[in-house]
């Protein structure tokens, strides 16, 4: 009973502007509330988060003047924490979190299809070298090759744009690739990733 009276006085003092009162309230109920949250979530970091969110709600409600003093401060705080725990589990259900363990690492089956930094650098170098080599091609072949590779145009579209028949466009592409290979071989260039 004494505890409830104390809480009621502290709450009233806090509402009247005594910041020290909330500190006493937090320290007083810290272990009880934290242990309660921990018993449900079994994770220290999540416990800290929920504890923090609980008191932020408490503070906002008290400062807004929406708290109805009935001598039940702790049960009210516990109810807020309980609701936040439910929210936490609901959120986790929507977005499940998986952590690997010693025996099984999730990253051994999940891979990122992006290149690593080294391969990315090599790829950029190859792309740059290729651009220089393409510039060495005859103008008509270079035009067709750029439209096909860089602009992803169909041979029909290339033929229309360059005002030649589709067979000529195909032929230019073929010669462009043959000539590129010749330049690469002639200069002993290695283009591999």
């Amino acid at each position: 009973m004494q505890t409830q009276i104390d809480d009621a006085i502290l709450v009233s003092n806090y509402i009247n502007g005594d910041e020290r009162a909330i500190e006493i309230l937090i320290n007083k109920h810290n272990q009880r509330l934290s242990s309660y949250i921990y018993s449900k979530v079994l994770d220290s970091a999540i416990t800290e988060d929920i504890f923090q969110d609980t008191f932020i709600k408490v503070i906002r409600t008290l400062k807004r003047g929406s708290y109805n003093e009935e001598g039940k401060f702790l049960p009210w705080v516990m109810r807020i924490a309980h609701n936040l725990i439910i929210d936490h589990f609901r959120k986790n259900k929507r977005m499940p979190k998986y952590e690997g363990n010693k025996e099984f690492n999730i990253f051994s089956v999940l891979t990122d299809d992006k290149l690593n930094v080294e391969k990315q650098l090599i790829k950029e170098q190859i792309d740059n070298d290729l651009e220089i080599l393409i510039e060495k091609l005859p103008k008509d072949q270079k035009e067709v090759l750029k439209m096909r590779i860089y602009q992803d145009m169909s041979f029909n579209e290339i033929a229309e744009n360059t005002e030649v028949s589709i067979n000529t466009a195909l032929g230019r592409m073929r010669y462009a690739l043959i000539n590129l290979r010749k330049i690469i071989e002639k200069n002993n260039i290695v283009l591999t990733n």
Partner: peptide
């Protein structure tokens, strides 16, 4: 583990 007494930092 569920009965552990802990305190917020």
């Amino acid at each position: 583990k569920q009965c552990k007494l802990i305190k917020a930092k």
